[in-house]
Amino acid sequence: MIRVVVVDDEQLVRAGLRLILEAAEDITVVGEAADGVGALEQAHRLRPDVVLLDVRMPGVDGLTAAPQVIAAGAKVIMLTTFDLDEYVHQALRVGAVGFLLKDTPPRDLAAAVRTVAAGNAMLAPTVTRRLIDSFAERGPARRDAARERLAPLTIRELEIVREVARGHGNADIARRLTMSESTVKAHVSRALAKLHVGNRVQLAILVYDADLL
Score class of each variant (00 low, 15 high):
63 L>I: 12
86 E>P: 08
62 G>L: 04
81 T>Y: 04
67 P>L: 05
92 L>S: 03
83 D>V: 04
93 R>L: 12
60 V>W: 08
68 Q>W: 08
84 L>G: 09
73 G>N: 09
61 D>N: 14
78 M>W: 13
84 L>V: 12
69 V>S: 01
70 I>L: 09
68 Q>C: 00
61 D>R: 06
85 D>R: 02
83 D>Q: 07
82 F>L: 15
92 L>Y: 11
87 Y>D: 08
70 I>D: 02
94 V>P: 07
82 F>E: 14
93 R>T: 11
85 D>H: 10
88 V>Y: 04
62 G>T: 05
73 G>T: 03
86 E>R: 14
80 T>V: 04
59 G>E: 08
70 I>F: 02
73 G>A: 10
98 G>S: 10
87 Y>G: 05
76 V>Q: 13
80 T>C: 03
97 V>C: 11
96 A>F: 00
87 Y>K: 15
70 I>A: 03
89 H>E: 12
69 V>M: 01
88 V>E: 03
80 T>K: 02
97 V>P: 04
82 F>G: 07
58 P>W: 08
77 I>R: 06
68 Q>D: 15
94 V>N: 09
85 D>P: 02
73 G>H: 06
75 K>P: 02
58 P>T: 06
74 A>S: 15
61 D>S: 10
86 E>D: 12
82 F>V: 13
84 L>Q: 14
66 A>S: 14
93 R>A: 13
101 L>K: 10
90 Q>V: 00
77 I>H: 07
66 A>W: 00
84 L>W: 05
73 G>P: 06
83 D>S: 15
95 G>D: 09
102 K>S: 11
81 T>K: 09
77 I>G: 10
85 D>S: 10
78 M>Y: 14
102 K>I: 04
